[in-house]
Design a protein around this nucleic acid. Structure first.
Lengths: 261, 261
DNA sequence: TTCGATTTGTTCGTATGTATT
DNA sequence: TAATACATACGAACAAATCGA
């Protein structure tokens, strides 16, 4: 499937920004607006450059940045595509729980394991103060909440409590959510054209309450990890607010910091 | 201060890698080897390109990647410099504890606060199994261990237990560590030419033991965060193994995930 | 299997703009 | 102002991957 040229030709903007950034914005707008769904191919570089009245080098620089941000993917000999995020790489980009490494094995790579997912609930509700703050809504705006339990090696390890705007995900049903093939973020993208690009997390240690104890099968009061995550799309717009409660008796929550900003 | 040209001219390597990657490797080697210390300026682009017999565009592409990895910094009109990491940006890149946001204030930015640091100990020891695994040493290799307590707003919040290779940090003394002006990573860089580029972390929730209770002033058994961090330099070589114990009653451990790899 | 068309990847070079000193 | 250095923009030529005839 191909994206039409008309959709990105204008390039009226000036504002002092470099040309390649204006081009990048144009491309980004075309993607955000959902006119070109994930997986679709862009026209070839020469064609886009001609249509936008910029040199091919300038276009390539714009595309370079979008590739770096994982918005586009280039494949030599094939073309340039809007990134698809239903793959392993993406799963493990945001799902970061691993079995505790055994000192006897050093830091040998552990076999990556797919979590087993169970749906624990689905309801429509109104945003509270915390939801509103995290999702940039007003208190009382309609939201959808649902709960998942993730298991690794037959053990319940993570309880996710997820809140999203009902307006942003109009028509989402429990069945549709339960029947999804891939990750939740992949569903956001394929069914709603919403691409999760970043996530902010705040982590703390708390004592397991009654509900957590029940869901994860741990004694009440046991220390568990609580991760509050806000997932963001273009323009740092909040998409999802998620509270994950993690049993770290046998697993670790892993992350990789880099000098990026 | 300027870096000599001789130090990076060869460019003998081939191996099928693109030219700009070979150039990048050359530059990286020159920096790793410590021949050019952090803060120093590279020769100007035209000069380097000529010395390496590549076009200026190819050189710029190599430098682009190193800038992206925060190894180099470009300043228009001034030159290109080996990155210095003693600044705020760097501090908060790896120090990620913030006061718990108050729901009443929404997500207003909290005033960034510098932690107050106390030294709690310094000793020379031999690597155990865990140290050896994390630092890629042999058990029994000499190591240095030291402890810090970090306070925010007058409250003890973080206890760091740090282990480094005594061979890599030859001649490091308690006084030198205590008298440092800036962060520990800045000392690694300015005194030993070792630049920390990334860090891997494994986080879990545990109950405060007797020692943690004493150091952080919390009741024994209270859930606290335990972060195991391995700091890495060029070539993912381990530099430091650090276990941070964090009181998350009033603070959060924050991080930002992106779709980078 | 081979070949050719298509598309991105790499390398080169030049000209001009902008920030710094 | 002038010199220096990086930033932006253009475009040409060829290499390498992909795919279908």
């Amino acid at each position: 499937m191909k994206i039409e040229l008309m959709e990105l030709t204008p390039l009226t903007d000036a504002g002092g920004a470099p040309l390649y950034r204006q081009v990048k914005q144009q491309l980004q707008r075309a993607i955000e607006s959902g006119r070109c769904r994930p997986g679709h191919a862009l026209p070839n570089e020469a064609e886009i450059a001609r249509a936008m009245h910029v040199s091919i080098g300038t276009l390539r620089r714009a595309v370079d940045e979008l590739v770096h941000e994982h918005v586009l993917v280039r494949r030599q000999g094939k073309g340039t595509f809007v990134a698809l995020h239903g793959n392993d790489r993406f799963l493990f980009q945001f799902f970061h729980v691993e079995p505790r490494p055994d000192a006897r094995f050093g830091d040998l790579p552990q076999a990556a394991e797919y979590p087993h997912v169970e749906s624990l609930g689905f309801e429509r509700d109104r945003a509270g103060e915390v939801d509103a703050g995290a999702l940039r809504l007003k208190t009382g705006d309609p939201v959808i909440r649902f709960d998942n339990r993730l298991s690794l090696g037959g053990r319940a390890v993570v309880h996710d409590h997820i809140t999203i705007s009902a307006l942003m995900f109009k028509g989402l049903t429990e069945k549709r959510l339960r029947d999804r093939q891939s990750t939740i973020y992949s569903l956001y993208q394929t069914d709603y054209g919403i691409t999760v690009l970043h996530a902010q997390e705040r982590t703390r240690a708390v004592a397991a309450d009654r509900n957590t104890a029940r869901v994860l099968g741990v004694p009440m009061g046991q220390p568990v990890l609580e991760v509050h995550r806000t997932a963001l799309t273009f323009g740092d717009k909040p998409v999802e607010y998620r509270v994950s409660t993690i049993n770290t008796q046998l697993h670790d929550y892993v992350s990789m910091l880099s000098k990026r900003l």
